[in-house]
Design a protein around this nucleic acid. Structure first.
Lengths: 249, 249
DNA sequence: CTGGCGCGAATACTATAGGATTTATGAAAT
DNA sequence: ATTTCATAAATCCTATAGTATTCGCGCCAG
């Protein structure tokens, strides 16, 4: 989804000897910035779930014209952060219900343990290094600060994508990415959670894969997903006092 | 993806006694029509794989402004029929390679047999009726005409989606739909193929599900996909003389 | 003949304007 | 009090214009 925003200016054509002054603080494509801005508004709940998202309103708020906003929203729709009703505008999608969260993890349980097993079978030397590097670059969060939570989520995303990548099936990798599971889970309980157990479980998965142990990798991934879903995520629905979109005033 | 285009005009507010004259032959939202038009151009290979797709050019050709074209292309990107390079425009995606086709079917083998098994476990009376109706509404193609091929593909899509639906996991169903496999396979060899075997195999799957036989359903689906991939699709790459996008002039 | 440079054309990108539809507001009738 | 209807405002949708960037072609140096 992301990874598209590359700068296309200031790559050369600059008089020699200018010591590469600021490569112009300008944007690449405005629609990409607008995309990220709206996504941030939704993730931060500044745009609440199920709330209407006005095209012209956003354009005014972001000080841009409606044109790039339309394109950004069309893309956000494929990430299922907004839904469109023709002639009526866009609306932020509701948060995951308990059932939808379980269903999401059921799907992950269907493809990710398989991917872990395949990764263990196919793992090469360079791959092992990548896995170890990802684990090494991550440290157990000391506090439950927002920043550390975001960093941990980023690590989680990278590792799961990497494993799906190592499975050697672009379709499986892509199917996983298209769930945007980290996005939706993050939006669900964006005030920190998740402990150090996650990293321990990740380490177990990485160990199994690097040892080429197919069954252990599959098992470790399955256990990780089950713990994540049933031990860490689902309990948040009962306690925590998260408000749902179907609660009225 | 589709199913969004609903008319929002002429639903009332009409003087009584006019006998509901033509509900206005007008469009719902122009961007939807443009979406379908461009999709048709790509599927018919009027826009060749890997060819550049000009926004302004399409707008002139379709006699509309670039605005709805931009929105349509943004949506077509999520179906992977076009790819965008910022500031450089859109480009029709290349056809599936042999490897990509195999990978696609590997993914289908991962989720669809599972879905068939689940469907067999959960099937209710009404569901059985739906399955039988879908089979009854389909007949073995007599000729290898384009129209019949299209009809058979439509049946294939409906049946596979229905089974994914009956599995009770929206995520699995959605993941399957997001592959747009029928779209890409159709585009691959859009001049007819596929015989009556498909229908026979479909019948076997439906029988197993309606009988609630979990293992048989899973097995039948697996066999169906393997036959489809290895017996019917892959051979087309060697024979048939399909030209690939990487062949130059 | 090959590779780099520059100019013109084509194209993408953003902003703005106007028409069409929906939504909100409020008065009148039951 | 509730419903119906009309009017006004807000919003979506499409079209058009102008700017920025890329692309294509010819020219020139090597």
């Amino acid at each position: 989804m992301s990874g598209r925003a590359r700068t296309h200016w200031g790559d050369g054509r600059r008089p020699q000897g200018v010591a590469a002054a600021k490569p112009l603080p300008r944007r690449a494509v405005l629609a990409d910035d607008v995309y990220e801005a709206i996504k941030a508004l939704i993730m931060d709940h500044e745009i609440e779930p199920d709330a209407r998202v006005s095209i012209d309103g956003l354009a005014r708020q972001l000080r841009v014209s409606p044109t790039p906003v339309r394109e950004a929203l069309a893309r956000l729709e494929s990430a299922e952060l907004v839904a469109k009703e023709p002639l009526r505008g866009y609306r932020a999608t509701p948060l995951l219900t308990k059932e939808e969260l379980e269903d999401l993890y059921q799907f992950r349980l269907l493809i990710e343990p398989w991917a872990a097993a395949r990764a263990a079978e196919r793992v090469a030397a360079g791959d092992k290094e990548q896995l170890r590097a990802e684990m090494a670059a991550t440290e157990v969060p000391q506090s439950d600060s927002y920043a550390e939570y975001k960093a941990l989520t980023a690590h989680d995303t990278r590792l799961h994508v990497l494993i799906a990548e190592l499975a050697g099936s672009p379709q499986v990798r892509h199917a996983f990415e298209r769930t945007h599971c980290h996005l939706h889970i993050f939006r669900l309980h964006y005030h920190r959670t998740i402990g150090a157990e996650t990293i321990k479980e990740h380490q177990a998965i990485v160990d199994a894969i690097t040892q080429g142990d197919k069954d252990a990798a599959e098992h470790a991934m399955r256990r990780h997903l089950e713990s994540s879903c049933y031990d860490r995520l689902l309990p948040l629905y009962d306690a925590g006092g998260r408000r749902r979109h179907d609660e009225r005033s």
